[in-house]
């Protein structure tokens, strides 16, 4: 049995300890907002927080996530009121939307650590892939959420 804390709630799951956290979150716990994109930590669609830090849950064994507090997109806020989510709505960011949970989680973690990132810091920190090319609106939304209105 593996014990996990996800979105402030405790779960016990009977899984192979090598199972990537992503699939435990999706198939065993049932939160599907966290997405599978590549399985090798390249695209970031599976980004969740482990003790506030962004991790690519497709490449993290569930046994290594036992001790920390895991937050998924469903737990970022109860009602989409997190500043990053509000900024995403204000800039009407998503297109297909598949990468956006990961983008939002990566951004929320960035802003928690660096409340006013420059464009260069965004470039370095947000390495997620969006095949629809929503990057320009994401950048605007990050600055909006950071409250620095696009200044760099």
């Amino acid at each position: 049995m593996i014990s996990l804390t996800i979105n402030d709630k405790s779960y016990e799951v009977d899984v192979d300890p090598e199972t990537p956290l992503l699939w435990v979150i999706r198939d065993h716990i049932g939160f599907t907002g966290t997405k599978f994109g590549c399985g090798v930590g390249e695209c970031g669609a599976c980004t969740v927080h482990l003790d506030g830090a962004p991790v690519r849950s497709c490449s993290l064994q569930v046994s290594d996530a036992q001790k920390g507090a895991i937050t998924t997109i469903e737990g970022l806020s109860p009602d989409a009121s997190h500043p990053v989510q509000k900024a995403w709505v204000a800039e009407d960011v998503p297109q297909c939307g598949y990468c956006q949970s990961g983008m939002i989680m990566a951004t929320a973690a960035l802003l928690a650590e660096n409340p006013h990132p420059t464009d260069a810091e965004i470039d370095d920190s947000i390495t997620n892939i969006c095949r629809c090319g929503t990057y320009p609106r994401i950048r605007k939304a990050i600055h909006l959420a950071a409250g620095n209105k696009g200044e760099i």
Binding site: G33, D92, V93
Partner: peptide, 17 residues
């Protein structure tokens, strides 16, 4: 604004997967 934005920022949008 897009009608699908809300569901795509809180993880509730249902994709095939």
């Amino acid at each position: 604004p897009r009608k699908d934005t809300a569901a795509k920022v809180d993880g509730s949008a249902i994709f095939g997967i």
